[in-house]
């Protein structure tokens, strides 16, 4: 029962976040002093010989066409309805294309990159952190974990730039940019899959290198705390194997805050990945966002930002729901 109430509270919170994001998305541009239609028409008036009376007339016609003459609350409700159906209108830079279609094309790339790097760095980082706390006499482990922690302070894309310089420009082992070769057409063949993999090594590596440390720090701290617990002393007294104590007693208990941290770090990972994609010319949401920014394609910008916020909110909700399964104490 409590679980159900908690679930409802989380879903409510999720909706509140999404609503707040959508509302800000709607009202922020309204606050801007510039009206896109008048701007456009003024430029037109200067270059061609349209009189100012015609401009006023045109403005009124276009305002009606785009529904800008209606009261703001009416437009706001319409907008919320559109958003609920993930309809963000048409892109300006790729005009007839719908924003939702552009996003649908880009999103698998981003999700593939993000999910794989998150899993890899979470597992490796957690293990290194746990191990570094367990074997505090190992100089090598301490050095490696401290170095990874320093790396975690560096944004993904800066590491990415260094990796490109070393491995793509200097050594030429990996392609400099892109999600696949410009000469090939996406197709479900092994050939193409291998190429995609080859192109994703450096972007994935730059995210992984920078985020392993985040998990290692947290795990090391928790593991040290857990080691001081009475049940660890008891486990040792019972003569359990080192391996069993490490995994079933140490890691099992120390990993819980890590899972919570996973939810909090999602936002950071997403925003970091946006720039990684931009740096690597990787055809995901980040690159789409960047090109929309440079071309002032507002519908696409708002669409992407909205989708990213929803993704983050949903993944946080997912973590909240998984948590009770991992920690029996929360279930009661």
């Amino acid at each position: 029962m409590n679980y159900l109430i908690g679930l409802l509270r989380h879903v409510f919170m999720l909706l509140a976040v999404i609503w707040a994001a959508a509302t800000l998305n709607f009202f922020l541009p309204q606050l801007a002093p510039k009206n896109p239609i008048t701007e456009k028409l003024t430029v037109l008036g200067e270059t061609s010989g349209i009189s100012s009376a015609q401009i006023v007339e045109l403005t009124a016609a276009l305002n009606e066409r785009f529904g800008l003459d209606r009261p703001i609350w009416e437009r706001y409700l319409d907008y919320l309805g559109d958003i609920a159906r993930f309809d963000f209108g048409q892109s300006i830079s790729n005009y007839p294309a719908r924003v939702s279609d552009l996003i649908a094309q880009a999103i698998p790339w981003t999700i593939g990159l993000m999910v794989s790097t998150t899993i890899i760095s979470f597992v490796i980082g957690t293990l290194i952190g746990a191990w570094a706390a367990w074997r505090r006499d190992s100089v090598l482990l301490q050095a490696v974990s401290s170095m990874l922690m320093v790396f975690s302070a560096i944004p993904f894309y800066l590491i990415g730039l260094v990796l490109i310089y070393v491995f793509a420009v200097r050594l030429g082992w990996f392609p400099i940019s892109g999600g696949y070769s410009i000469f090939s057409i996406p197709a479900p063949t092994w050939e193409f899959a291998r190429e995609v993999l080859h192109h994703s090594v450096l972007p994935a590596l730059s995210i992984t290198i920078a985020s392993i440390g985040i998990w290692a720090v947290g795990m090391r701290g928790m593991m040290v705390t857990v080691q001081g617990e009475d049940y660890m002393t008891f486990a040792r007294a019972r003569g359990l194997t080192n391996r069993r104590m490490f995994l079933n007693y140490g890691v099992r208990n120390a990993i819980l805050p890590q899972v919570t941290a996973l939810a909090l770090f999602f936002g950071q990972i997403v925003t970091g990945a946006v720039l990684v994609e931009a740096v690597f010319g990787y055809p995901g949401m980040g690159l789409l966002l960047l090109s929309s920014i440079t071309l002032f394609d507002y519908p696409t910008i708002y669409g992407i930002v909205f989708i990213l916020i929803v993704t983050i909110a949903v993944s946080m909700l997912a973590v909240e729901l998984i948590y009770p399964l991992l920690d029996p104490r929360v279930r009661r």
Binding site: V17, L28, V270, I301, I309, I312
Partner: peptide, 19 residues
């Protein structure tokens, strides 16, 4: 603060600075 913390800052900053 809780609601705003779940929102990744940079995405909102993108919108504000784009404007």
């Amino acid at each position: 603060v809780d609601v705003l913390l779940t929102v990744p800052a940079i995405l909102f900053l993108v919108i504000i600075s784009a404007m």
